[in-house]
Amino acid sequence: MTTRRPLRWGGSRSRAIGGVALIVSGGVAIAGSDTYVLLLLLAGTVAHVTGWCVMPADGWRRVTAAALSTPAVWLLLTGPRFIAVLVLPYIGWLLVRHRPLRSYPTITFVLAGAVILPSLFSNYSQMLPAVAIEFAVIVASAWAAWAVATTRDSRHLPEQYP
């Protein structure tokens, strides 16, 4: 788990909270930009990448997560039909949080939401509710991945009574 890792600066909890705040606010800023507000796109991108950089994890994990997540968030500018790209930031989250491989099947929940939502929300004007629902699915999936990662090995069941 990432809370047990030695850090060069800051605390694990404060870096995780700050990182999440920057990642999400950067994504919101990117989503709020357009051709008239390109400075917001730049600021959102810098905040988003900085958020991944401050997360408590190995450096290669943070770089990989930022490299997966940033283009995915940019693709959301095209509308709800590309909401499936949010699986990439989720994979980055699992990677940065050092989740074991047994927690990666939770990606299917994010993909299921990404398949269903574009059929319900097709116009760009419906992007906010579509992303809000998918974000809720991602948060629930992250909690499920945490639960899977923290469960003990179930192969050592107690012997049955005779």
Rank of each mutant, 00 (worst) to 15 (best):
R4W: 00
R5E: 00
L7D: 00
W9H: 12
G10W: 02
S12P: 03
R13F: 11
R13H: 11
S14G: 11
G18W: 00
V20S: 14
A21T: 13
L22E: 09
G27K: 13
A29G: 03
I30Y: 04
A31T: 10
A31Q: 08
A31K: 06
S33D: 08
D34L: 13
D34W: 10
T35I: 12
T35Y: 10
V37S: 10
L38K: 07
L38P: 08
L40K: 13
L41M: 08
T45N: 08
V46T: 13
V46A: 15
H48F: 14
H48R: 07
V49Q: 06
G51F: 06
C53L: 14
C53P: 04
V54P: 05
D58R: 15
D58W: 10
R61W: 06
R62A: 12
V63H: 01
V63R: 05
V63F: 06
A66S: 03
A66T: 07
A66W: 02
L68S: 07
T70D: 08
P71G: 04
A72H: 00
A72E: 09
V73T: 14
L75M: 13
T78F: 13
I83F: 08
I83Y: 11
V85D: 03
V87N: 08
V87E: 01
L88M: 03
P89E: 05
Y90M: 11
G92S: 05
G92T: 12
G92L: 04
W93K: 09
W93C: 06
L94I: 02
V96R: 00
R99P: 03
R99S: 01
R99M: 03
L101M: 02
L101V: 00
R102I: 01
S103F: 01
Y104F: 15
T108M: 14
F109S: 13
V115I: 15
V115S: 07
V115H: 04
L117W: 10
S119F: 15
L120G: 09
F121I: 08
S122R: 12
N123K: 13
Q126H: 14
L128W: 13
L128C: 05
P129R: 11
A130P: 06
A132K: 10
F135D: 07
F135P: 05
A136G: 15
V137M: 10
I138P: 09
V139Y: 04
A140Q: 12
S141P: 04
S141Y: 09
W143L: 15
W143D: 04
W146K: 13
W146P: 00
A149V: 03
D153F: 02
D153P: 00
R155I: 00
R155H: 00
H156E: 11
P158L: 00
E159G: 10
E159M: 11
Q160K: 13
P162W: 06
P162R: 11
